[in-house]
Design a binder for these strands. Sequence first.
DNA 1: GTATAAAGTGGCACTGAGTGCCATGTCAAC
DNA 2: GTTGACATGGCACTCAGTGCCACTTTATAC
Lengths: 202, 202
Amino acid sequence: MRKQQLVRDTIWDAAIQLFAEKGFDETTVDDIAVAAGTSRRSFFRYFQSKSDLMAQDIVSYGASLADAIRRCPPGCSLPEVLRRTMLQAAQHSAAQPRTRQIMEIAAQYPAAREAQIARVAEVQEHLAAAYAERCRVNGGNDLTAHVLAGLTLSLLSVTFRTWFTNGQNDIASTVDQVFATVQQLMGGRVGAGRRSVPRGGG
Amino acid sequence: MRKQQLVRDTIWDAAIQLFAEKGFDETTVDDIAVAAGTSRRSFFRYFQSKSDLMAQDIVSYGASLADAIRRCPPGCSLPEVLRRTMLQAAQHSAAQPRTRQIMEIAAQYPAAREAQIARVAEVQEHLAAAYAERCRVNGGNDLTAHVLAGLTLSLLSVTFRTWFTNGQNDIASTVDQVFATVQQLMGGRVGAGRRSVPRGGG
DNA sequence: GTATAAAGTGGCACTGAGTGCCATGTCAAC
DNA sequence: GTTGACATGGCACTCAGTGCCACTTTATAC
């Protein structure tokens, strides 16, 4: 039924609203249920936990990421796949109406943040699988896929952080900036360019 | 007092033992308190939460990381700092007696895993600060520092994952392998993506 | 329209996490 | 032995999350 989704959305909207108004910790599940015109018991039929509410957008974020990887033209090199994936996911998230509000809640409440971070870690597994398919075409082993998945999420995390704290509008340029930074860092030479130094750094 | 640390260690040991035996979710704080010969109320004076127990080793992990960054010889390039940092942190963690046991618990119980992941995210902030100091010397801006911090943790995560699932003993070679993968991946031009040969070692 | 199965809802009671409060115990100083 | 600082543990409370069950709604069959 479509009514299911409606109830779900109603609860979610009410919750985010309350989190923004009262704070995450200060809002009880009862508060949310009442605000959404339902019961505490029903709340837990739609969401696994209070924290789960904060992780909802990560699901679509993850789907958007895996989708971007798979939709990349076959001719793309792996770094190009990474760049395009970052770009699409960043724009997808930036376009969600509640994104900034949710980021603000996450920034303010550790418990809310934890829920998001944990879900992102789950997404990483799916990304690695999507990249693994790519690697079969472009060359690269399972390790490459996992590195790419980790890279995607950590670079996007930096991207969002920069975008959010700078209050910028254009997230695409932030993506470019971050991507260029990694390339410069791991590819070119930055600063003192001595490559190998005797071991034992202590 | 040193006795404080003793009680703390006793509780922690008892907890990890119980998690390994009964499972994380199945172990209550009461169980832990009794096993450690103390009370539930005292438990919460030593640890913020049950999950906090799983995050204890992340604290020393984070300290080890920041330490490695700062101890790196001044002549090192940023990628070299990254490589050495990864290596030291990996070896530090691999040397902890309980590391594999804790990884097993984390692998099995989402709630336990979440606690660790959340703490790692906190560590990232400290790493970025340590890298920022480096960047003042080696060149590179604040963004570079944050990218490096994210890179460090995500690459180490892949490293531990590989090391853990493969049941390898030598984590240093795993670090080299992961590091080489990123260099190969991001080092070349966007079009081709093939570059230097992975350098074995350790 | 009525009967009925299936699914959704909400109340109730329970366990467990985490916290505030306070009485008690311990240990050192005087 | 008294005093003060501090650690401890018990008690009671709130809130998250779950199992159970009665009730209501909806869909389907006759």
